[in-house]
């Protein structure tokens, strides 16, 4: 070990004013991009979003005409974004980790020693997370969309297929970015993922333990779904459409099935926004009341 120099003796004048939201934002941005878990989660999401969607489209091409019931309701946008269900797990985990890793490692103490106003920290985290998730989701979706449409277009059928009296196009239909409902589906899906990350950020502030918060998130997305499906029809129809997994299946479609048991695309996005705001609000209240 080398001999250490004496501390600097300069005493600085405090700058006037007060730390601002932008300081918290800058700090959170550095923290967000300097841990590997962020890259792991976003990378995993992109990989699943692009890879699984491409795989789904390739399978569709090879199986076209063999399952006419599915082919009739085929939506080329949904097919080229098929990875969103699995991908949303990685996004949800990221939202949790942004908070829970700080509690798990104790670095939350350093954070609050720099910015004692805790709600400011929560809002800064929410802004950094939501902007990052939206951008990564939008780019991944675009790649998945173009790749998916290219794969669908490569189908080689030339004769219309007729099975059991049902007429099917020779090839799976494809769409372009300017096709009806395409941009809406892409934007709504990116918003869905962004709001999902904010919902799990709120869960992170609520539960603070990585394992616990991730369990709660996965429990919210899947088991709750199974539970509602098992309810008597009257309850099921009323509740099912509000489940995140159900909303997610609506937002990725260019031709969403409009029925009493599903929300419209924008109603679905709004429902997700309500969940995110409620989770963050409860998180904020507990954050200011509890010991760090």
């Amino acid at each position: 070990m080398t001999t250490l120099p004496a501390p600097p003796t300069s005493k600085r004048q405090l700058p006037t004013g007060h730390y601002k939201f932008r300081h918290a934002l800058g700090s959170e941005w550095i923290k967000f991009r300097t841990v590997r878990s962020t890259m792991w989660c976003l990378g995993t999401f992109s990989l699943i979003m692009i890879g699984f969607s491409a795989l789904f489209c390739a399978v569709t091409v090879s199986q076209w005409g063999k399952r006419p019931e599915e082919a009739l309701t085929f939506d080329p946008v949904t097919a080229s974004l098929a990875g969103v269900t699995m991908g949303s797990l990685a996004i949800g985990v990221l939202g949790v980790l942004v908070v829970s890793s700080e509690y798990g490692t104790g670095s939350i103490k350093a954070t609050f020693a720099a910015i004692p106003h805790r709600t400011t920290v929560l809002l800064a985290k929410a802004v950094v997370l939501s902007i990052s998730v939206f951008i990564v989701a939008a780019i991944s979706e675009l790649i998945a969309f173009f790749l998916g449409q290219t794969i669908l277009r490569s189908a080689s059928g030339s004769q219309p297929i007729v099975i059991n009296g049902v007429h099917l196009p020779a090839k799976p239909p494809t769409v372009t970015l300017s096709g009806p409902g395409v941009m809406t589906a892409l934007v709504a899906t990116a918003l869905f993922l962004t709001l999902l990350s904010l919902l799990t950020l709120g869960l992170g502030f609520l539960i603070r333990h990585t394992a616990g918060a991730i369990s709660a998130f996965v429990g919210l997305l899947f088991p709750l779904f199974l539970l509602v499906v098992l309810l008597p029809a009257t309850f099921k129809d009323r509740l099912e459409k509000f489940l995140p997994l159900q909303i997610q299946q609506t937002v990725v479609a260019s031709k969403p099935i409009v029925s009493a048991t599903s929300l419209s695309i924008w109603a679905g996005v709004l429902a997700m926004a309500v969940y995110a705001v409620v989770a963050l609000a409860i998180g904020a209240v507990l954050l200011t009341r509890r010991d760090a």
């Binding site: 550095i30 923290k31 300097t34 841990v35 590997r36 878990s37 890793s101 700080e102 490692t105 104790g106 670095s107 939350i108 103490k109 350093a110 020693a113």
Partner: peptide, 14 residues
């Protein structure tokens, strides 16, 4: 503060 207020996955500089 108590030794453990640093995220182990981040560099000292960051």
């Amino acid at each position: 503060l108590e030794a453990s207020s640093i995220h182990p996955g981040r560099s000292a500089y960051n």
